[in-house]
């Protein structure tokens, strides 16, 4: 676990102005995440974990401190450069899946490639591969409303993987799923982690955090606990839908 640093936060501050009062969502965060880590960020709502996630995801810009992602200083980048980072370096997984309705699984997965300027033949091929990777080879042309919640989230994970990112950011990825399905999804994340993918996951469920290799706990915009752990192995009730690559 001593790979190169993928994320380096130094004194990261983010302040919101709500009705004239200042709310410090992030009060000076120092954090280093190295390549291949599986990090769970925990904390109650309002602890700043979502803001941290958005900042890590280059969706939000900090007011102070520095953020280096894969060696790039993010603070000075414009909207286009941030979009490129999100496109090439990061993959997002959301609580509510955020798939385009009335659009097939394959086309949903192709979306990041579309903005990366990948040609249609290669897009198709890579989307198929990503869907096979998450065990949905037989659901490529299904629309989201024809898929179960777990399957929808796996489409979203395939979409996050398709442009070979350096890191996956998952915001409460199991929040809308039942326990059995949650474990399936965590098994998929763990499988990806074993292949060397860096994963940062926000959750408020301790049951989910046990599958990570490192757990950060946040309170009032600060990291109050940071511990490494031996992860519990997620064993899906159905065989893990991970094809060997």
């Amino acid at each position: 676990m001593a790979g190169p640093a993928l994320i380096e936060l130094v004194g990261l501050v983010r302040t919101y102005h709500v009705g004239g009062t200042e709310v410090k969502a992030l009060g000076g965060i120092n954090l280093t995440i190295t390549e291949g880590e599986f990090v769970a960020i925990m904390g109650s709502s309002g602890s700043g974990k979502s803001t941290l996630m958005n900042t890590l995801g280059c969706l939000d810009r900090p007011d102070g401190g520095t953020y280096r992602l894969a060696g790039t200083e993010v603070a000075g980048l414009d909207r286009d450069a941030l979009a490129d980072l999100r496109n090439h370096t990061l993959g997002f997984v959301f609580q509510s899946f955020n798939l385009l309705s009335r659009t097939s699984a394959r086309e949903n997965v192709e979306l990041p490639l579309l903005y990366a300027g990948v040609g249609s033949a290669e897009r198709d091929q890579r989307a198929r591969k990503a869907l096979e990777r998450v065990g949905l080879a037989d659901r490529m042309d299904h629309h989201p409303n024809q898929l179960s919640g777990g399957q929808q989230q796996r489409v979203a994970i395939a979409r996050a993987l398709v442009n070979t990112p350096r890191m996956i950011l998952a915001d409460e990825p199991t929040g809308n799923l039942d326990t059995a399905t949650s474990i399936e999804i965590m098994a998929l994340f763990q499988a990806l982690g074993r292949e060397g993918m860096t994963i940062v996951l926000v959750t408020h469920e301790p049951d989910i955090a046990v599958y990570a290799t490192r757990v950060l706990t946040m309170r009032d915009g600060l990291i109050v606990a940071d511990r490494l752990q031996e992860p519990q192995q997620a064993v899906a009730s159905t065989p893990p839908p991970v094809a060997a690559t």
């Binding site: 979009a83 955020n98 903005y115």
Partner: peptide, 16 residues
């Protein structure tokens, strides 16, 4: 709006 947000999250630039 959410679709737009998603497209941006996966790499769409404002001009897209």
């Amino acid at each position: 709006t959410r679709e737009i947000g998603l497209r941006m999250a996966v790499g769409a630039k404002p001009r897209h």
